[in-house]
Simulated assay, not measured.
Amino acid sequence: MNTAVTTHYAEGAYDSRHIPNQPPQIRKQAGLLTMVLPWGSTEDIAPYNFVDQDSPKRLRELDENERKHPGTRLRNETVFHTICNHICYRRAHVSLWTQIWLYMWGLGRALSLIGAALYILLFLPILLLTRIYLIGDTSDITNTIIISASWVFLPTLSCWLIGYIAIYKLPTHWILKPSKGPLWELNRQTGQVTVFARKPGQFAHLGIDGDFIRPFYEFDACVHILPSRQGLPQYSLHLVHRYQSVAIDFKPVTGLQSSEQACFALWDMWQNYMDISHPLPDIPTWEEFRPLDPTTAEIDRQTNRNPRFWRDMDDATYKVAMDDLQTRIHKLNALSRPNLMVRHVLYL
């Protein structure tokens, strides 16, 4: 952690107590299969998988790696165009090369587990019943099971194993390759949201030469509903600019969700992160930066918060905390909240 970094909020930093009046909405930017979420009345919460990716154990490992190799974090931020601290959250895609290995590992694992369940619960009983009652020949049933299992599991298990070896066993610099640049940024210090131009003239049709930069309060959160291949609803959060056809898709942050509740939690998290009248979200991700953020540091001083509350947490206590988080996420009812922004914007 670079303790020399300090934060001084810019004049335009987002403060939910002082939101300026804005022009009326001229057209709806969200699609049909969306739920527009209200502003305000947030809880100090975050999606389960966003919190769990920075478990106390992992944070301690990162701290130890930084101690042994000072400057690793800063070099990674520079090379991979990603930042996550008390000033901003900047996101970038990993390279196509890295995505290939991640997909091999992730899809191989998922398909292996799903295939195993289907094979044991459906295919194997049907095979046994067919051989015993219809054909009446069980002499070759072992070979049949082995051959069928090979066809089902060999491809997926191979992908899982190769991806696992590549990600966890090979040198990191062989697998993790940088992308061409950042995608977007939420900046707590300035209150601005930036969508980076990935190609020259990307926003020229909007009269913008370069990146699209607008205040956070000009965006609305929308939950997009997408059907899976099985026809089940999947949910993702998007931050949509109210006046221009520009949006941020948060699927790279949390992925598609089986419930809209995770999207509600993510929207609360982003509002709290950007709002300088609130402390940083109290999750492991931002704990080490809390002393560097003025609002957060003052509240922690008043409450005498343990500065290593998360990082020194044991596994059993962390599990209880995550179970409690799941319960709180399940109880969120964001759609029933009054919309703070209607005091400052005339919506269609």
Score class of each variant (00 low, 15 high):
81 H>A: 01
324 D>M: 12
163 G>E: 00
292 L>P: 09
266 L>C: 03
144 T>G: 12
99 Q>Y: 09
217 Y>S: 07
52 D>C: 11
259 S>V: 03
6 T>G: 09
289 F>M: 10
59 L>S: 09
126 I>T: 12
28 K>L: 14
289 F>K: 07
102 L>G: 03
80 F>C: 00
105 W>E: 02
242 R>T: 12
218 E>K: 09
249 D>M: 04
194 T>Y: 01
84 C>H: 14
210 G>A: 05
70 P>Y: 06
292 L>D: 05
65 N>G: 09
187 N>D: 11
99 Q>A: 12
133 Y>R: 11
14 Y>N: 02
248 I>N: 01
272 N>R: 14
277 S>K: 09
200 P>Q: 02
303 T>K: 15
89 Y>K: 13
80 F>P: 00
288 E>N: 12
214 R>L: 02
160 W>Q: 05
219 F>G: 02
209 D>H: 11
317 T>R: 15
188 R>N: 04
160 W>C: 08
188 R>F: 04
220 D>W: 10
143 N>I: 13
7 T>R: 06
15 D>N: 15
4 A>Y: 11
212 F>R: 02
318 Y>H: 13
200 P>D: 03
326 Q>N: 13
80 F>D: 00
218 E>T: 11
86 H>E: 14
131 R>M: 13
79 V>E: 06
48 Y>D: 12
230 Q>P: 08
137 D>V: 10
103 Y>G: 02
60 R>I: 08
44 D>M: 09
